[in-house]
């Protein structure tokens, strides 16, 4: 197949996966609603049906994942390079990694309750990618032609995915904590793990991925040294990567050395995560500096 045929195939696969993700989102929504109802009308409402819907929703999400994988692969083949040369590709690859991480985690932990928020997040990312960020498949500009592209950007994508997951969990912690202090969890929240588990989980995710984020920054610095003649230049993207690093470093210190837990820690985690999101959106869309390539 030629490059343009592959690019065309990639677009079709990404569209199809968006469609299947939408179906899976609806089923997750129904499943959530029914299981809330099943809890309320204990014994009256049929639980087996909920179970069946959940299984279909997960099967559909797996199918959407495979379609998206095909889409990302075809994109990479059409451009003869790794599929993260611009923000559109970064987004579809990020969505793929995010879904993949969830599906793998699902085999080990009981994380079905996360299905609905995850499918919403993926739909938002893919939707924005297709409508706002789309760029035709093209080779890289000379500055991006380096092995460090593979190393630096993949480390950044993985770190970003895990930071966002930790953020989701910290936010969930805060919501549930508020519920509990106001008299107890509602029907939906009863399916969720204990506060302590959520608190621990978000910390562990951050502790796990902080070294990787450090590595992403250092790999970027090494690359910048060979492409731009300096390893650090306070480019907006670099500055915000540094701010994110500092914020998570503060979070880890607060937890490990100062013994912060629960609410305070969750807020700090959210703050750190939002600096990452800001970097992703602001610098790519409105920012200036050397990290803006190929339009976006």
């Amino acid at each position: 197949m030629s490059s343009s045929q592959l690019a065309y195939l990639s677009n079709n696969l990404v569209y199809s996966s968006l469609f299947v993700f939408t179906l899976s989102f609806f089923l997750f929504a129904i499943e959530t609603a029914w299981s809330v109802r099943a809890d309320r009308e204990n014994g009256v409402f049929d639980r087996a049906r909920t179970e069946k819907f959940a299984r279909i929703a997960i099967a559909l999400m797996t199918l959407a994942f495979l379609l998206l994988f095909g889409g990302v692969l075809a994109r990479a083949l059409s451009a003869h390079r790794v599929p993260w040369g611009n923000m559109y590709e970064f987004s579809i690859t990020g969505a793929l990694a995010f879904t993949g991480a969830y599906l793998v985690a699902l085999r080990k932990y009981n994380l079905r309750w996360l299905g609905l928020p995850i499918s919403i997040a993926v739909l938002l990312v893919l939707g924005t990618a297709i409508t706002l960020l789309y760029r035709p498949s093209a080779p890289l500009v000379p500055a991006l032609k380096s092995t460090w592209l593979v190393v630096h950007v993949s480390a950044a994508i993985i770190s970003g995915g895990v930071f966002l997951l930790a953020n989701t969990i910290a936010a969930t912690y805060l919501i549930i904590e508020r519920m509990e202090s106001r008299g107890g969890r509602n029907a939906w929240a009863k399916r969720l793990p204990t506060l302590e588990t959520l608190d621990q989980l978000s910390y562990r995710l951050v502790a796990f991925v902080f070294p990787l984020w450090t590595f992403a920054i250092i790999a970027g610095a090494i690359w910048a040294e060979s492409a731009w003649g300096r390893y650090w230049g306070w480019d907006p993207k670099e500055t915000w990567a540094f701010i994110t690093w500092v914020a998570y470093a503060a979070y880890l210190h607060a937890r490990v050395t100062a013994g912060w837990k629960g609410k305070k820690a969750a807020w700090l985690c959210l703050l750190a995560g939002s600096t990452f999101l800001f970097n992703y959106v602001y610098v790519n869309v409105w920012g200036t500096g050397r990290h803006t390539y190929s339009g976006l």
Partner: peptide, 27 residues
């Protein structure tokens, strides 16, 4: 530790204006 934490967060905050305003060294 408290001072270190505050300084760490301050460093992050202090870096922000440089990314929003143009800088002589870059542009």
């Amino acid at each position: 530790m408290r001072t270190a934490l505050i300084l760490l967060l301050l460093l992050g905050i202090a870096a922000i204006p440089g990314s929003l305003l143009p800088q002589r060294t870059q542009n």
